[in-house]
Design a protein around this nucleic acid. Structure first.
Lengths: 219, 219
DNA sequence: TATACGTTTCTTGTATACAATATCATTGAC
DNA sequence: GTCAATGATATTGTATACAAGAAACGTATA
C-alpha cells in the first residue's frame, strides 16, 4: 500500500497544501511538479486527481488545477458538518463504550490536561486530536470513524489557527471533561449535545478570527 | 465540466457498478475496458482512480482493481451515518426553512403520496429521492447537502432493494408526513429524531432482507 | 504423483510522443 | 490610441511504447 510513486506524491502534495507550502489559489503545474519530483507527468496527474477528489484542489478544464480557495462560508459549513459528525460519534460512543474504553478515554484526556498545564499549545493540539479520534473509534462504526477523521483532517489548518486565541485551551479542556462524563454515564443525548457545541464553537471562533484578520487588514 | 473522456467513462462505470453490470468482486481489466470504450488505457486508469476514491472499487497493487464487496456490516454502518446526516439536515432545515420552502416540501411529499396511491414503486423511489434531496438543500449548508447526496447515491442499490418489502412504502409515507410537520413547526429536535429513525429503519430492513436472502440460499 | 523451481506471459506502473485547445501577444484597422 | 483578430506558444488530454513485477504454467526431480 502506498507503494506507487503517484501515491507517495499525492500524500506529499496534500501535506504541502495543508501546511501552506502551496497557497490557496496557486496553480499546480504538471511539468514543474514532474521536474521537481523527477518523474514524468503521468504520476503527477494521478496524484492531482486524488487531491481533486478530496476537494483540496479544483480543476478548470484545459486550464489546470489550482489549490482550492475555500471561502469563509464554506469553512463554516464544514465546521457545522464536523459538529454533527462528532455529535453522532459521541452519541454512539456513549451507548457502546465499555468500562475499559472509558478509562482509556480518561487517560487520553489527562494528556490534554497535562499539555494545558504546561501551556504547550502544540502538545495540546496533538493530544486534542487523539482525544477526538478516540471518540470517533468508540462510535463502533468504522465508516463513521473514517468519515469523521477525513473531515477532521480537512479542517486541520483552520483548527490550528484558533488554538492561539486567548482562553481557548482552557475552555476546550472544560468541555472535554463534560464530554467524558457524559460518555461514561452513557448519556447519549448529552454527549452528542456537548460535542456539537464543542466543535460548533470552533466554527464560531474561526468566524471571529476571520473578522479580526479582516479588520486588521482594512483598519 | 464532465467534458473529458475519462470523466464520462468514470460516470458510466459508476452507473454500471451501481446497477450491477459489474458484480461485486469482479475485476475491472484496463485493456478490456479500453477496447470496449475505444480509448487508450490512460482515460480508463483515470476513471478507475475516481471510482477508487469514492470507495466503489478497491485496488490491489500490481494486481488490478476490483469491484468492492461491501460487507453487510459496512452497509449497516453506512446507513447509520446516513441516518445521522439526514438528522442533521432535518434539524437545520427545521430552523432555517422559509414558509415557501415548507410549502414546496409539502408539494414534493404530495408527489410521494401520489406514487403510493398508484402503487408505483419506481415512481415512489424517484419522488422519495426528491423529497430527501430537498431536505438536504433546506439545511442551508451546501457542504452538508453534498455530503448527504454523496452517501445517498452510494447507498442507492441497497435502498432500492427494500422498497419491494411489503408495507414499506406505506410506512415510509407515514414517516414523511411527520417529518414535514416537524420541519414546518420548526421543531428541530423532533425533525432530527424522525429522520434518524426513518433512515435507520431502512438499515434494519436491509438487515432483515439480508437474512431472508441468506435463508433462501441455505434452505 | 506431488512439489518445487524456473520460464514465460500477462498486467500494471511509468515515460514519452502527439493532438487539440486555450491563452497571450502582436499586428492591423478603425 | 484602443479594440479586435489572427497566429504563436504553452498546457492539457490522450495514445503508445517500454519496463518491472506478479501469476500461471510446465517441467524435472524426489
Amino acid at each position: 500500500m502506498e507503494s506507487s510513486r503517484s501515491d507517495q506524491i499525492a500524500s506529499l502534495l496534500e501535506e504541502q497544501i495543508l501546511t501552506g507550502r502551496f497557497a490557496p489559489g496557486a496553480r499546480l503545474d504538471e511539468v514543474s511538479l514532474a521536474e521537481e519530483h523527477q518523474v514524468s507527468r503521468t504520476p503527477i496527474r494521478e496524484a492531482l486527481q486524488r487531491l481533486l477528489l478530496s476537494g483540496l484542489v479544483e480543476h478548470a478544464p484545459r486550464r489546470g488545477v489550482f489549490v482550492r480557495q475555500a471561502s469563509a462560508i464554506e469553512i463554516m459549513e464544514m465546521f457545522e458538518v464536523m459538529a454533527e459528525l462528532e455529535a453522532a460519534c459521541g452519541r454512539l460512543a456513549a451507548m457502546r463504550s465499555s468500562e475499559e474504553a472509558v478509562e482509556r478515554l480518561r487517560r487520553v484526556n489527562a494528556g490534554c490536561r497535562e499539555a494545558l498545564k504546561n501551556g504547550d499549545a502544540d502538545a495540546y493540539y496533538e493530544e486534542n486530536g487523539a482525544f477526538h479520534h478516540f471518540i470517533y473509534a468508540q462510535s463502533g462504526n468504522r465508516f463513521l470513524e473514517n468519515e469523521a477523521a477525513r473531515l477532521h483532517r480537512r479542517l486541520k489548518p483552520y483548527r490550528r489557527m484558533q488554538l492561539h486565541l486567548r482562553g481557548r485551551m482552557q475552555q476546550s479542556m472544560d468541555e472535554h471533561d463534560g464530554i467524558v462524563d457524559a460518555i461514561a454515564a452513557g448519556k447519549a443525548g448529552a454527549a452528542a449535545e456537548l460535542l456539537r457545541s464543542h466543535v460548533g464553537v470552533q466554527g464560531e471562533k474561526f468566524h471571529h478570527l476571520l473578522q479580526q484578520l479582516r479588520l486588521e487588514k482594512t483598519g
